[in-house]
Design a protein around this nucleic acid. Structure first.
Length: 415
RNA sequence: CGGGGUGUAGCUCAAUUGGCUAGAGCGCUUGGUUUGGGACCAAGAGGUUGCAGGUUCAAGUCCUGUCACCCCGACCA
């Protein structure tokens, strides 16, 4: 991608209503722009990041047998009357209406849609287990949207739902998902102890649910970490005597964290009301058991920026960076411009993702500052200076040192 | 949803006790000079001061209402 083709711009000043590092930097660098409180446009750079996050999650869900679907945004409120959640979710609903008297809601979650959906195809124990997921835009009328992408009113969510013959089978799959989620966070740069499996409220049907909490001072949640087990307990369920649910350790460390995932054993909470029955080996009707597993890709994007930034801008992990390489030429010399253009063509042909700052009228300082702000993993500079030294300059965004290498060795280094 | 704060150019902000044609920086346009850390000179374009009503000779400034945004709290399936 050439910089000159991007319709967005970076900004020297941050917008005044940015309330967090992620809102400030993502807006200033041209990844997102706010449309209203808690509602953002994903601009070209931001959409690439979001897509990379979603594709990473998609790959891991597919590995554990997930069926990807796309459920609707609009649903008749009567679906929620079946489970009684038309009452409990009433504050978060955005309501609208269709032709005639129909009452329609924009789905804040999809248990009431996926349960009757899977029920249409599953009749026997031989059809179980099954796992279904989607990426969807969720709508929740939050009383107070805040912290940029961390708490929006319209946001992206991967929600997966699994259906099982019995609790034992659900437990086994739940374990598999637990591991898959850790693989997701590792790949997105939120692993290595940055994200902690946290015991949280399980509702009426199981003792605990599990949250994935990424340590960050901006986080809304308070968790108590057992450093021996590398698990935590959420303050919302911790009594005065915080103990590790795994080993009984009472010496727990208090931290703030962002909830980046939540998995639940729902048991028959939804399959019951929808009468999702299957026939077992003996020909008896049984209620299917259900689990649900959520990750918010847009919130993850905000979280990554909260974790990876410095005073100059964002520092994207390679796996989610919109492009791998930020290429530019400095100075007015035609040779460096031509060389940069040539490198751009070569890298593009090798499918190395490169953002080429080809702006002719921008100063060196402006280009370098923009590269730091946007935060791609590699910066490649071509100038008279580098060409005299026989090559191009390569610098990693997360390192200070620069090195001059021969242009022909670039592909090797960047592949 | 309760309490508080703020709305002035695309962005960041000025504008004395109400007083003249609402200004500056950034960005944008044109011309020229520049080019390794957000260059410089010159000339320009850009405003229903959130919106509606009121007080006044006179309102960006005061009053009422309303909308939006931000903060604290509550809420967070």
């Amino acid at each position: 991608m050439k910089f000159s083709q991007l319709f967005t711009k970076t900004s020297k000043t941050a917008v005044s209503d940015a309330d967090s590092i992620n809102a400030k930097l993502l807006t200033q660098a041209g990844f997102i722009t706010k449309q209203m409180a808690g509602v953002y446009v994903f601009l070209p750079l931001g959409l690439r990041v979001l897509n990379k996050i979603e594709n990473t999650i998609r790959e891991e869900m597919n590995k554990i047998g997930g069926n990807e679907v796309l459920m609707p945004t609009l649903t008749l409120e009567e679906n929620y009357e079946i489970t009684g959640r038309d009452k409990t979710l009433t504050d978060v609903f955005y309501r609208t209406s269709g032709a005639g008297e129909s009452k329609i809601v924009l789905n804040p979650t999809h248990e009431e849609i996926v349960t009757p959906l899977v029920q249409k195809f599953v009749f026997s124990y031989q059809d179980l287990p099954k796992s279904v997921y989607q990426f969807q835009t969720k709508f929740r009328n939050e009383a107070r949207a805040k912290s940029g992408l961390l708490r929006g009113r319209e946001f992206r969510m991967k929600d997966m739902y699994s259906f099982h013959a019995d609790e034992k089978d659900l437990d086994a799959y739940y374990e598999e998902v637990t591991k898959a989620y850790f693989r997701v966070y590792d790949r997105l740069g939120l692993g290595n102890g940055r994200t902690i499996l946290t015991y949280a409220s399980g509702g009426a049907f199981s003792k605990y649910s599990h949250e994935y909490q990424t340590l960050s001072s901006i986080g809304e949640d308070t968790i108590y970490i057992c450093e021996k087990c590398q698990v935590a307990v959420n303050k919302e369920i911790a009594d005065e005597q915080n103990v590790c649910p795994k080993c009984g350790n009472k010496d727990l460390k208090e931290e703030k964290a962002i909830e980046v995932g939540n998995i639940f054993k729902l048991m028959d909470k939804f399959t019951g009301p929808f009468k999702f029955l299957y026939q077992n080996e003996k020909g008896e009707q049984q209620v299917a058991q259900m689990g649900c597993y959520g990750i918010g890709p847009s919130r993850i994007m905000g979280t990554i920026v909260e974790v990876y930034n410095d005073e100059k801008g964002i520092i994207w992990p390679e796996s989610v960076a919109p492009y791998k390489v930020h290429l530019m030429s400095l100075g007015k010399e035609e040779e460096s411009k031509k060389e940069a253009e040539k490198i751009y063509q070569e890298l593009s042909q090798k499918n190395i993702e490169v953002l080429f700052d080809d702006r002719g009228n921008s100063s060196a300082g402006e280009k370098l500052a923009d590269a730091d702000l946007i935060g791609l993993p590699y910066r490649v500079v071509v100038s008279k200076k580098t060409m005299e030294k026989g090559g191009v300059e390569v610098k990693k965004r997360n390192e200070e040192n620069v090195e001059i290498i021969k242009a022909k060795d670039l592909i090797k280094i960047l592949s």
